[in-house]
Write a protein that binds this DNA or RNA. Structure first.
Lengths: 252, 252
DNA sequence: CATAATGAACAAGGAACATGTTCGATACGT
DNA sequence: ACGTATCGAACATGTTCCTTGTTCATTATG
């Protein structure tokens, strides 16, 4: 079993059982206790769990967002397909503002060899695009949130206000026809709104799981979106409701 | 011989001999021709040299700046000492704007465990500071220059204008009592000036080699500097002249 | 057209990483 | 305060990835 696979299993097991002993986790993963301890130390640093003598307890009980490193490994294949489709929606020469989040990071990778202007809203995406000779990279100012490295704050909003884009590619934590597009973080939501306000059209990206969630911070109603790109496993009821609200839904 | 050591030798040899054959470079480095070809491809991508059939010729003949990857490995020890001294000049709780360049990157590493607010002017320094729990990181907007990843342009200057710092740590390409502080890049020079204008005091960092150079873009006269940190090998004539202009010179 | 350089493909060597084991130190319950 | 269980540092082993060298078919040059 690979390291990341084991981390995922430990995090999942703790989300269900609240807390587990090191011995239980070692049995569950089939590895030694020492390895589990090393994993727990890493996951504790990421804020996934809290150590106590003999075991660990999950910190992801409520509607909180798992940390970046964990989410990046979930549904990678679906995210890549979504990203490829989004890249196909963008024409050469366009200017794009690219939201933070793991799905948008895949979009960044998909845009590396395209002739486009990109303003990424997270350092992860920025790093994915540096050194790409055909991409003109514009960085907004702001304060990178730990782990996520999403840029937020007045500097970010000021940078966005100074530029106009053809397309905004926006990620989300929840997306339903009733509640619209929602995010876990209030500051993030403000940046998403600013990015959309500076763009002619908005493309939202959302894996299937997003359609059954509504997060804390409201960003925009479905009518503000021009297209939503999701994967084929998205529930038809949810996507039909969005389509009825006038959004173009692409399942890839 | 390590890879970076070999790259350095190849670049140095070409700077002296203008152009050399692959066979000559293979003999010089004691490695196979295939390895030299692979090295030349990498260095050509970095803009260090130009390939031609049978060998390569240097592109660093004039007053041009060697690429970031090469400079980072030169005088590492001196840069680390300078960086440690600069970090000691900065008090806990201070806000600092940190210039681009390899020496300032070392300063960023030296500040990782300090309780300070830092706005780095290059993505290299920004990446060195992400994940540091005690550092409040502020990113300016701007366009990262390839390789260097130095942020420049109107967005950078606007971000700097919106904030006030206790200390500006400024790198340079040349520093003399007559010509003042100079840089290779005009856009960089404008950013340096904006950073200094937003700060109460300016600390310049300069390895010994900088005192015998004057680069294209003028940034500031010596009188605008409050302190210069350099290494012990800096020529006394140059540092004395700066001291006479009212600058505190620290040799470490 | 002949010769030399080139770069792709494969193989060997070594460095870096992940994992497991051992053992002294440390924290907890009684 | 004592005994027990947990912890994490240090070492040993296995695995993977990166670097280097060799071979050979292709390509450029005179």
């Amino acid at each position: 079993m690979g390291t990341t696979e084991r981390h995922r299993r430990i995090a999942d097991a703790l989300r269900e059982a609240h807390e587990l002993s090191v011995a239980e986790l070692a049995g569950l993963t089939g590895s030694s206790e020492m390895t589990v301890r090393r994993d727990l130390e890493i996951l504790a640093d990421q804020g996934v769990l809290e150590r106590f003598r003999g075991g660990a307890r999950s910190l992801l009980l409520r509607g909180e967002e798992p940390p970046f490193g964990l989410r990046a490994r979930e549904g990678e294949e679906a995210k890549r397909r979504i990203a490829a489709d989004v890249a196909a929606l963008i024409a050469d020469g366009e200017s794009v503002v690219l939201d933070s989040g793991t799905t948008c990071l895949e979009v960044a990778k998909a845009l590396r060899d395209r002739r486009v202007t990109v303003m990424p809203l997270s350092l992860h995406a920025a790093n994915a695009l540096t050194g790409a000779p055909s991409v003109r990279l514009l960085l907004p100012g702001g304060e990178p949130r730990p782990g996520e490295l999403a840029l937020t704050g007045p500097l970010t909003e000021a940078s966005l206000a100074a530029v106009r884009f053809d397309t905004a590619v926006i990620g989300c934590c929840g997306l339903t026809a009733d509640d619209g597009l929602t995010a876990y973080d209030l500051a993030d939501a403000a940046v998403k709104r600013a990015a959309m306000a500076s763009s002619r059209r908005t493309v939202a990206v959302a894996e299937a799981a997003k359609f059954s969630r509504t997060a804390l911070a409201f960003v925009a109603p479905p009518t503000a979106l021009h297209a939503v790109v999701t994967d084929v496993t998205a529930p038809a009821a949810a996507t039909d409701a969005l389509a009825a609200a006038g959004v173009t839904v692409r399942k890839v």
